[in-house]
Every structure is written in C-alpha cells, then in structure tokens.
Amino acid sequence: MKALDQRVRAEISKFKGHVSLFAKNLDTGASYGFGADDRVRTASTIKVPIMVEVFARVAEGKAKWDDELVLTEAKKVSGSGILLELSDGLRLTLRDAVRLMIILSDNTATNLILDQITTDAVNDRMDQLGLKQTRVLRKVGGGGESRAGMIPENKRFGLGVSTPREMVALLEKLERGEVVNTEASREMLAIMKRQQYRDGIPRALRGVEVANKTGALDRLRSDVGIVYTPRGRIAMAITCDDMPEIIWSVDNPGLLLISRLASLLVDGLSK
C-alpha cells in the first residue's frame, strides 16, 4: 500500500485544486484513502442516493414505476440532460425519469423526481443505511430545501454533500444486494453501467465493465463507481474541487486526474 500511496500523492501533487478519494477492493477488503472522510460537494453523484429512495418507495408500495410525471416550462432547469429541450406537457413515467437522471444526468428529471419523493425522504433513507454524511440539500437550481440544507454550514455544498468513504460504502451495499433488495440493487447498478459520461473513471480502463455516476460543476469534477476487473471489484469515489480554471471539455484537468487515479487504484488494489 505504500507504493500506491506514493504514486497517488505524486499525481495529486501536480494538480491545481483539492482532491479527496477512497477506494476498496470488494473481494479482498483492501482499501486506500486520501482525504476519505472529507465532506465534499457531490454535484450530480447525489443522484445515486435519490435513485435509491425511488427504488425503495416502489418496493414498499409507496410509488409505482408507471406513476406519471408531467414536464412544464416552469419545471425545466438548465445543465445536463435532454428534458430542457422537450415540449411543455410531456408525460413520462417515474421509471423513465430515473433512467434519464442517471444515464443522461438529467437535471429536470431529477427535480421532477424530488417533487414526488422530497429531499428529506432521501436523507432519511441514507440514515437507515447508516450513511450519516450523505445528504441531498435541495433541488437542482434551488427550491425543495431539505432540513439538512437549511443548516448554514451546509449552504456551501450546493446540491448535496457526502464523503468519499460513504459513497464507496453505498456502492458496496449495492454490489452486495443490500440496498432495498438483491433485484433492486442489481437493477440500479445496471442503470449506472449504461450512463453515458465516460471521461472520468472509465476513460482509460479498457475491456472492463464500469458502473458509475459523474458530477460536474464549474470548478469541480467527481466520479463514483465500481470497476469490475478480473482481479477484483474495485469501488471508488474521487472528487477534484477548487480548480482555478473553468474548463467545460472532456480534457478538464479534474477528469484527466480522475482517470489517472482510477488506473492507479485499480492496479494498486487488485489481487
């Protein structure tokens, strides 16, 4: 682990910004952290906990996959996704909204879901899972503020807050079938495997399956996911924040660093 630590620190030392990460081989238990318990801005990685709450509600009979959500101009928000471009009055199912939220990171779909389930319900579910630091604070763009979002010290985190260690814990619970039930956990990971932003963790990993969810803000890039290697399932959460330049391209320094760190973590934690 000393060699891995040296290689990770060497990469981070060249980066202009703040880096926090945690990774674990789910087969061997070997793990590595650098700022693993830092409270970090989640950006869109908080959409994984939101998805968890939807699956739990459906399993409990509190919601149905064919529940109808209606798109209106007032509910459209900017940023990632496709619903912003679609017609007022469009009707979509709860299942479709969840898939859009993860696969395209659709911000409008996320808000439509939160209007149905509430931010506080997501956080209560995280409590049940033992994840005390993982919180959705408000809807994308504002509104729907949770109890946690009203705490002054949380305002700086924006949409959500978590730690790399807790995000990996959630991924591990999903992989072990402990979130809602085995079937629901498997389906959530299958959706994550189809998400279309592949410039972070999966970028340089060839021939391996990856289930992940990305996040992006002006000065932040983050990625949480599981890399399914022949030498073990490596779960990781990496956040690169406080970057001095705003660069909205696939060659953002944060994305490039996440890619390099992912390769190091896979190599260093493999059996």
Results as ranks from 00 to 15, higher is better:
Met1Tyr: 15
Met1Ala: 15
Ala3Ser: 15
Leu4Arg: 06
Val8Gln: 12
Arg9Pro: 15
Ile12Lys: 09
Ser13Trp: 00
Lys14Thr: 04
Phe15Asp: 04
Gly17Val: 00
His18Phe: 13
Leu26Asn: 02
Asp27Tyr: 04
Thr28Asp: 06
Phe34Gly: 11
Gly35Glu: 02
Asp37Cys: 02
Thr45Gln: 14
Ile46Ser: 01
Lys47Trp: 00
Pro49Gln: 06
Ile50Ala: 03
Glu53Lys: 13
Glu53Gly: 05
Phe55Val: 01
Ala56Leu: 13
Val58Arg: 00
Ala59Phe: 04
Lys62Gln: 14
Ala63His: 14
Ala63Trp: 12
Trp65Lys: 04
Leu71Cys: 15
Lys75Met: 05
Ser80Ala: 15
Gly81Ala: 05
Ile82Trp: 08
Leu83Ser: 02
Leu84Trp: 10
Ser87Trp: 14
Gly89His: 13
Leu94His: 08
Arg95Pro: 02
Arg95Phe: 10
Arg95Gly: 08
Met101Ser: 02
Ile103Ala: 05
Ser105Arg: 09
Asp106Cys: 08
Asp106Ile: 10
Asn107Trp: 00
Asn107Cys: 03
Ala109Trp: 08
Thr110Pro: 06
Thr110Met: 07
Asn111Thr: 05
Leu112Phe: 10
Leu112Gln: 05
Leu114Glu: 03
Asp115Thr: 11
Thr118Leu: 07
Thr118Trp: 02
Thr119Ile: 04
Val122Ile: 11
Met126Ser: 09
Leu137Cys: 02
Arg138Ile: 06
Val140Lys: 12
Gly141Pro: 13
Glu145Phe: 08
Glu145Arg: 15
Gly149Val: 01
Glu153His: 04
Leu159Glu: 03
Val161Lys: 07
Arg165Gly: 12
Met167Asn: 09
Ala169Asn: 11
Arg176Trp: 04
Glu178Arg: 09
Val179Arg: 01
Val180Leu: 01
Asn181Ala: 06
Asn181Glu: 12
Thr182Lys: 15
Ser185Thr: 03
Leu189Ala: 11
Ile191Ser: 04
Tyr197Asn: 07
Pro202Ser: 06
Ala204Cys: 15
Glu209Arg: 05
Thr214Leu: 02
Ala216Leu: 13
Arg219Trp: 11
Arg221Glu: 07
Ile226Trp: 00
Thr229Met: 08
Arg231Ala: 10
Gly232Met: 01
Arg233Glu: 04
Ile234Asp: 02
Ile234Ala: 05
Met236Ala: 13
Ile238Gly: 00
Thr239Lys: 08
Cys240Val: 13
Met243Lys: 06
Met243Cys: 02
Ile246Thr: 06
Ile246Trp: 05
Asp251Lys: 14
Asn252Lys: 10
Pro253Cys: 09
Pro253Phe: 05
Leu261Lys: 09
Ala262Thr: 10
Leu269His: 06
Ser270Glu: 05
